[in-house]
Design a protein around this nucleic acid. Structure first.
Length: 270
DNA sequence: ATGCACTCCTGAACGC
DNA sequence: TGCGTTCAGGAGTGCA
């Protein structure tokens, strides 16, 4: 569910709560998430002090002074609940620190939690193969052009491939392609360089705007504070099948591409 | 190597 | 009201 802007929002919410705090207690209530929760996770975290929080792609990172980094992924339905009155079904992990209880809640259990030595975090299997951060300067049109060269797969598939660029999901891929006026199903290798430059800029723009809005709230995404992200009100195509394209006035089409709901204006996007 | 369908799981929304 | 169906923001696996 959560894509880069939602994870960034969550990390920014956790940072003031956890950074510099000692972890007093960790409870793993359910270990069979997308991947098994490490059996020694609670033991290794309890008593450690949090030294920093960060994000890589759609993964949240929590480093401690014991040399470990907690990695979390929210999957489709994951979120954090802060200081809940009582625990609910699907509350899988409880971390008590700094006078707060932070609870990982994930009904579908597509999310996961990992622990890795901080020094080796970049080579962790889940992180090692990731492409550049879309908001970093080294992600640009040339980078996309290199990845797209001679590829017959669609440009949307390329944007969703975390090895090419890390952090986009279905919503922001759709939105970026609309802004760049590129048809989602177009073969990646058949898009001219200047159009890929435009696409890279569109990716950055939509992510920056979404982060500023606290992400998008469709079903599950809530900032740690409980605030709702509002970027869903700024979607130009996602979820707007049948509505008018804001650019040309024609109808926005919804179709399935690669098994995912895809939204585009067939007149504006080529 | 590349492209893509399938799969995991649960809850919400919808149609009858 | 109740039941069955469909659909979700992800991403690893396995097949052609």
């Amino acid at each position: 569910m959560p894509e880069l802007p939602e994870v960034e929002t969550v990390v920014r919410g956790l940072r003031p709560l956890l950074d510099g705090q000692r972890i007093e207690q960790v409870e793993v209530r359910r270990a069979d998430l997308r991947w098994p929760v490490p059996a020694d996770l609670a033991k290794r975290l309890t008593g450690a002090r949090v030294t920093g929080l960060g994000r890589r792609a759609k993964y949240g990172l929590v480093a401690t002074d014991r040399g470990d980094t907690l990695i979390f992924h929210l999957g489709m339905s994951g979120r954090f609940r802060l200081d809940p009155g009582s625990l609910l079904a699907h509350d899988h992990l409880v971390i008590a620190a700094g006078g707060h209880r932070v609870v990982l809640h994930d009904p579908r259990r597509f999310g996961s939690v990992h622990l890795t030595p901080t020094a080796a975090a970049a080579s962790h299997p889940l992180l090692a193969g990731l492409g550049p951060e879309p908001l970093d300067p080294d992600f640009d049109g040339a980078c996309l052009a290199h990845a797209a060269e001679r590829r017959t797969t669609s440009i949307k598939a390329l944007l969703l491939d975390q090895r090419i660029v890390a952090g986009l999901g279905n919503i922001y891929a759709n939105e970026a392609l609309f802004r760049a006026r590129i048809a989602p199903a177009r073969a990646a290798g058949r898009i001219a360089g200047p159009r890929l430059d435009r696409l890279a800029r569109a990716v950055k723009a939509v992510l920056v705007e979404a982060i500023a809005a606290g992400g998008s709230t469709l079903r599950d995404h809530v900032a740690v504070s409980g605030e709702l992200g509002t970027f869903q009100h700024q979607f130009r195509v996602y979820g707007r099948g049948g509505e008018r394209c804001e650019s040309c006035g024609g109808p926005i089409r919804r179709f399935e591409h690669l098994g995912r709901a895809t939204y585009a204006c067939p007149r504006c996007q080529r």
